[in-house]
């Protein structure tokens, strides 16, 4: 790891100011991806701004029928939250599948979505539930937030404050983990919401999480695993690596979607 100057601001305003003052500064949330990146010397920030002490970024609240989760809320807290389990059990279940218990004790929602690893789980939930990302500057719908592999709509001096998840009628997430890393090789989040059916796929796409619109259309009039039987998934644009070919990932997208639909009931 290269050395850097470390900051631990106590407020969001201070964090924004530090970011503005230091050109090569980077934000650190739970650090569960960023510290390994630093250890491998894949990043060389001048300053690291640790968001861990900013109380306003933490916490889970029930809001407008859905839940709002602070950016610095740990995966483990989401998984164990009575509120999340009651309002959107699929989201709590997804959080339980991220990393391992120790990673879940430090890793955060805000860190995960800001990094937008194409094999991360949370982007699937945000897209699948039609969540809204609240930042230090504005509100961004999930559909506009994820813009490509490790790319988001966030501006350089913009910090995720929280994510609001509307409550779906039904939802579930099915994950086929990469056997080595346990990241998502294919994860499918399905949700039946007041605004229609949403099917989000993570882990498979080269550009990160995306919505499977053909499945959404097929499910709109018939919410059941059988509704997507006739669909095929085009492997072009899907990842292919030593763990799974694009063809196999394409196959798994459908299998996971059906599992998720079966689980959602």
């Amino acid at each position: 790891m290269y050395d850097f100057a470390y900051h631990k601001p106590a407020s969001l305003a201070d964090a924004v100011k530090l970011l503005a003052d230091h050109e090569d500064a980077k934000l650190m949330a739970g650090g569960q991806t960023y510290i390994p990146t630093l250890k491998q010397r894949l990043a060389r920030p001048s300053d690291v701004i640790d968001l861990g002490a900013i109380a306003e970024l933490r916490g889970i609240t029930e809001e407008a029928g859905g839940v709002t989760i602070g950016a610095m809320t740990r995966h483990g807290e989401v998984a164990e939250s009575a509120v999340v389990r009651r309002v959107i059990p699929a989201l709590a279940a997804l959080a339980e599948l991220i990393g391992d218990p120790q990673v879940r004790n430090l890793g955060t929602l805000g860190g995960s979505i800001s990094n937008n690893d194409p094999a991360a789980d949370y982007p699937g939930a945000l897209l699948g539930l039609g969540a809204t990302v609240r930042t230090s500057k504005r509100q961004i719908p999930a559909d506009q937030f994820f813009t490509g592999m490790f790319e988001t709509a966030l501006e350089r001096d913009e910090i995720v404050k929280a994510v609001h998840f509307p409550r779906p009628e039904k939802a579930a997430y099915a994950k086929f983990p990469n056997p080595a890393s346990r990241y998502s090789m294919v994860g499918v989040f399905v949700a039946k919401t007041g605004g229609g059916v949403r099917v989000a796929v993570t882990g498979a796409g080269q550009s990160g999480a995306y919505r499977w619109t053909a499945a959404e259309q097929a499910l709109a009039g018939n919410w059941s695993p059988a509704a997507i039987d006739g669909l095929t998934v085009d492997p072009s644009g899907l990842n292919s690596d030593i763990h799974a070919s694009a063809d196999y990932r394409a196959h798994l997208v459908k299998v996971m979607a059906k599992r998720a639909l079966a689980a959602a009931g």
Binding site: G31, I35, D50, D100, Q102, N105
Partner: peptide, 21 residues
């Protein structure tokens, strides 16, 4: 996980946390 310790009562990987944190 060879480095797991407890910080404020919860298990974490001490190789993935800065001392200053």
């Amino acid at each position: 996980g060879c480095c797991v310790v407890h910080v404020d009562g919860r298990s974490v990987k001490a190789c993935t946390m800065l001392a200053v944190q």
